[in-house]
């Protein structure tokens, strides 16, 4: 069964006098365990689609279902709670909380979920070990390299045990080595824990690792290809 079902999604932005059609009837289904890249030129609508899949934005028309729950039916407060328990985020600029250490950043989401202190410390440590950054657990983001920060961001996303992880241009600010390491890590998580990853990317290196590539242009899906790698 699909964990994500986007049905006939339209998104129109009316922030200026001229309405902008960011998505024009997108239908997309994503199964558990997929490692999918959404690609397309700038302004094609891939980030808008990712925001809608991530519950950060709602479609103007159409419906988005996550394991049967229509996100449009949720109140703003419930939507935040839904994201907390179901969706992990990895951002292009890492977006870690700058005043918290790597360990605390990972723990933070568990605290939001109400996990007791002892359990969350244990789980956060395990995840940091999994993403191979445990030795930097007491470092704050400013003391870490871009690649290390993105590993912590992945750890934070994994900590909440989400149904899927949204990653918007996660390698855009990383050098080749860090990109390779991050992709290897994500792939490992995908294979080991069946974690679903959905990327929006321009990066060929990400596309080369993806098992499915959805190409979007002018707000429409123009191709959808699966790979055996």
């Amino acid at each position: 069964m699909s964990i994500i079902q986007a049905k006939n999604i339209y998104k129109v932005y009316n922030e200026t006098n001229v309405p902008v059609n960011a998505l024009n009837g997108v239908d997309l289904e994503i199964e558990k365990g997929e490692f999918t890249a959404i690609v397309g030129p700038s302004g094609s609508g891939k980030t808008t689609l990712l925001n809608i899949i991530g519950g950060l934005d709602l479609p103007t028309e159409g419906d988005i279902y996550i394991e049967g729950t229509n996100l449009k039916s949720l109140s703003s407060r419930k939507l935040i709670d839904f994201r907390l328990h179901n969706i992990g985020f990895v951002f292009q600029a890492y977006n870690l909380i700058p005043v918290l250490t790597a360990m605390e950043n990972t723990e933070f989401i568990l605290e939001l979920q109400g996990v007791p202190k002892k359990d969350r410390e244990k789980r956060a440590m395990e995840i940091l070990e999994t993403v191979d950054i445990a030795d930097k657990k007491d470092h704050k983001p400013g003391q870490l390299s871009g690649g290390q920060q993105q590993r912590v961001a992945v750890a934070r996303a994994l900590a909440s045990q989400p149904k899927y992880i949204i990653a918007d241009e996660p390698t855009a600010n990383l050098d080749s080595k860090s990109t390779e390491e991050l992709l290897t890590l994500m792939k490992k998580m995908n294979q080991k824990f069946q974690t679903t990853f959905i990327f929006a990317t321009h990066d060929q290196r990400v596309m080369d690792k993806a098992l499915r590539i959805v190409t979007i242009d002018d707000g429409k899906i123009v191709s959808d290809t699966q790979f055996e790698r």
């Binding site: 935040i80 709670d81 907390l84 328990h85 992990g88 977006n95 939001l112 909440s160």
Partner: peptide, 16 residues
């Protein structure tokens, strides 16, 4: 603003 946006994105209640 960005830190607040990240916090709400990952699931932090606005009341908190």
């Amino acid at each position: 603003r960005k830190q607040y946006a990240v916090m709400v994105s990952i699931g932090m209640n606005r009341k908190k």
